[in-house]
């Protein structure tokens, strides 16, 4: 067994620190300019088509093997539900997607909106998770590993869309639950998620995100009087896998229109990028300075044994 002497250790860390300093900073910051996997799949949601039939909710329930609902999926009284905080329904651990009804000002018809995970290009949930339970797959899904989840609920706070839900009822092993784009049963095999396939109005169109963006622009260009000239999720929080076009202003359909165009991680990225440098380079660097400053005094002379003795004083 080779013994690592103090001198060897210091020399090694100084060299390592110097190597880190020399690495181009651009590389370390590359994650900030990530714009999603090139062939990542997405879903274009056309709010003008939704009639609020809740078939997607039923399809999700069946596909994901979720517990039976409190009310039938063809019971439309759920649209009148108001939960604490004067909120409409939100996805829960028992329903990964919900449809809500909105009454935009001046519109003669209600607007329905399906809520589920938007599968961000750079997910805030993923970056907030300290046990690395989340993964953004090349197929475009944001999935998570329940076995790793410690139930800290950081992701619930981090998510700008308030999507991750929590199994509060579980006393022993509470974990996060959310829409996973039907990753294991469908997306992995190139199939659209259950909700998309079930929709009678094709509110949702499945395809490569970059291709769907083209369809969204085409629909708006062909019907400028019908659509608001905005694709919600094209730029919001760095781009989302699921994105929306609408005939009513997005804020009137319950969308948060004040979200930044940059990924949520950008808020803390500059600070976080400094942390490893401070923790690794600084000790080596300043130890190096110290060694240089004290060169010829007491360090660097004599063998290890005598050195240890000096330390013991």
């Amino acid at each position: 067994m080779s013994k690592i002497t103090r001198r060897k250790f210091l020399a090694g860390s100084a060299a390592g620190g110097a190597a880190m300093m020399l690495t181009p900073a651009k590389k370390a910051f590359a994650s900030g300019s990530f714009e999603g996997f090139p062939d990542g799949m997405g879903v274009l949601v056309d709010l003008t088509r939704c009639v609020g039939c809740r078939t997607c909710e039923a399809a999700c329930n069946k596909e994901q093997g979720l517990p039976a609902p409190d009310l039938p999926f063809d019971d439309y009284s759920v649209f009148d539900e108001i939960h604490h905080g004067n909120q409409k329904r939100r996805p829960t651990d028992r329903a990964y997607t919900v449809v809500n009804r909105y009454e935009p000002e001046g519109a003669d018809k209600p607007l329905y909106r399906k809520i589920q995970c938007n599968h961000c290009n750079e997910p805030a949930c993923l970056t907030s998770c300290f046990v690395n339970a989340y993964t953004k797959t090349p197929e475009g899904a944001v999935i998570y590993n329940s076995h790793v989840c410690v139930g800290c609920r950081n992701c619930m706070i981090a998510c700008p869309f308030h999507v991750p839900a929590y199994t509060y009822h579980s006393a022993i092993n509470p974990v996060i639950k959310k829409c996973i784009f039907c990753y294991y049963t469908r997306l992995k095999e190139g199939k659209p998620p259950a909700c998309v396939e079930s929709c009678p109005q094709q509110v949702m169109t499945f395809g490569k995100r970059k291709d769907l963006m083209k369809i969204a622009r085409e629909r708006i260009a062909k019907n400028p009087d019908k659509y608001i000239d905005h694709i919600y999720g094209e730029k919001e929080v760095g781009g989302t896998g699921w994105f929306y076009i609408s005939n009513a202003p997005f804020e009137e359909a319950g969308f948060d229109i004040h979200l930044p165009k940059k990924p949520i991680i950008d808020n803390v990225k500059d600070f976080l990028a400094i942390v490893p440098i401070v923790l690794t380079v600084w000790p080596a660097l300043f130890t190096g300075f110290h060694l240089l400053a004290t060169k010829g005094k007491s360090h660097g002379h004599g063998d290890d044994h005598s050195h240890d003795e000096q330390e013991g004083h």
Partner: peptide, 17 residues
């Protein structure tokens, strides 16, 4: 069956937890 309606409707006092 799919919509959990009709004869497959959840019981009135379905427990949440």
């Amino acid at each position: 069956k799919f919509y959990h309606s009709g004869e497959f409707a959840p019981a009135e006092d379905a427990s949440h937890g």
